[in-house]
């Protein structure tokens, strides 16, 4: 097992960034950590990258303890922080060379591993890293994180702020890196990327809500998901729908509302109620849920529980 995380908790003054998080990843797995901003993804990654210590719990990377064997971990780990952290005033090649030497290796030695990625930026080898575009910066950062052929790779929101085409390209690269036997732990706020991982963990408010394979995500048999569209005033309808009996959750999804109903009878009632509103250009139909729907529903219920428990 590459990453073993046991009951990790971490607080910053008032905020509890991580609460009792535990999970394990398999050898060579591409594990995704999905959650909104401020969920605790970065804190967890910084703990695994030996940059901060947890308050409670323990963790290990490839069998090395994050407290005792942090020196060993730093040799086998590639870490790409969310913010571009290479030297702006060194060129592309100088950055890569620098990280290769620091890890006691050379570009030539591991060139085959980064070839696919580095080929994109090689024509700009002599350009200063600070002058690269966002997508190229990200490719350089990934190249630098891989240049010492790490056993495990931690990528903190690598696709944030990257256009859709580059995002797809980036995930293709990750798949190829994974084939080299490198375990990858990646975080993202984009739920559609969850489907590309072997397994995903859903994290919110510092709590790990679930870990599962993307294909295994299923609603309860009785749950029915509707898509609601209308011409205008969608926010008003959202609050109206939320007020309806039998609607267990409703959320905006692009320009439509997805609403979840528990039970066939309730669904019929709800359908009748909405039709009674005489919504202009209404489209209301049952749909098959995607990963996003599953997560939204899960997060929604968690938030609800949180509020309840804080009131008590």
């Amino acid at each position: 097992m590459s990453f073993v995380i046991n009951n990790i908790s971490k607080s910053y003054e008032e905020t509890r960034a991580l609460r009792d998080v535990s999970f394990e990843t398999n050898e060579g797995e591409l594990f995704g950590l999905i959650g909104p901003d401020g969920a605790g993804k970065t804190s967890l990654f910084r703990i695994l990258a030996t940059l901060i210590f947890p308050d409670e719990g323990d963790a290990s990377v490839k069998g090395f303890d994050i407290r005792k064997d942090f020196r060993e971990i730093r040799k086998i780990l590639g870490y790409m922080p969310g913010r571009f952290s290479l030297y702006h005033d060194l060129s592309v090649k100088e950055n890569l060379e620098f990280y290769a030497t620091v890890f006691g290796t050379t570009i030539a030695e591991n060139y085959d591993l980064i070839k696919d990625i580095y080929a994109h930026i090689e024509p700009f080898e002599n350009r200063l890293a600070g002058k690269l575009s966002g997508g190229m910066k990200q490719k350089l950062a990934l190249s630098c994180a891989l240049i010492h052929r790490p056993d495990v790779l931690i990528l903190d929101e690598p696709t944030t702020g990257v256009d859709a085409v580059s995002r797809k390209e980036f995930w293709d690269m990750l798949k190829r890196i994974q084939k080299e036997g490198i375990t990858i732990l990646v975080s993202t706020p984009y739920m559609d990327e969850a489907a590309l991982c072997d397994r995903v963990g859903l994290i919110q408010h510092g709590k790990l809500l679930s870990v599962s394979k993307p294909g295994d995500l299923r609603f309860d048999e009785a749950m029915i998901l509707y898509s609601f569209r209308c011409k205008s005033g969608i926010y008003e309808y959202l609050s109206k729908i939320r007020g309806l009996q039998g609607c267990s959750s409703a959320f905006l999804f692009g320009d439509e509302i997805h609403l979840l109903v528990n039970g066939k009878k309730e669904a019929e009632e709800l359908e009748r109620a909405i039709k009674g509103w005489n919504v202009p250009a209404l489209s209301l139909k049952q749909i098959t849920p995607g990963i996003e729907d599953y997560f939204m529903a899960l997060m929604k219920s968690e938030k609800h529980d949180d509020l309840m428990s804080e009131e008590h």
Binding site: L51, R74, P81, Y99, V102, F103
Partner: peptide
């Protein structure tokens, strides 16, 4: 921080 995760 990037330097800190290296063996330097």
């Amino acid at each position: 921080e990037q330097i800190n995760v290296t063996p330097v």
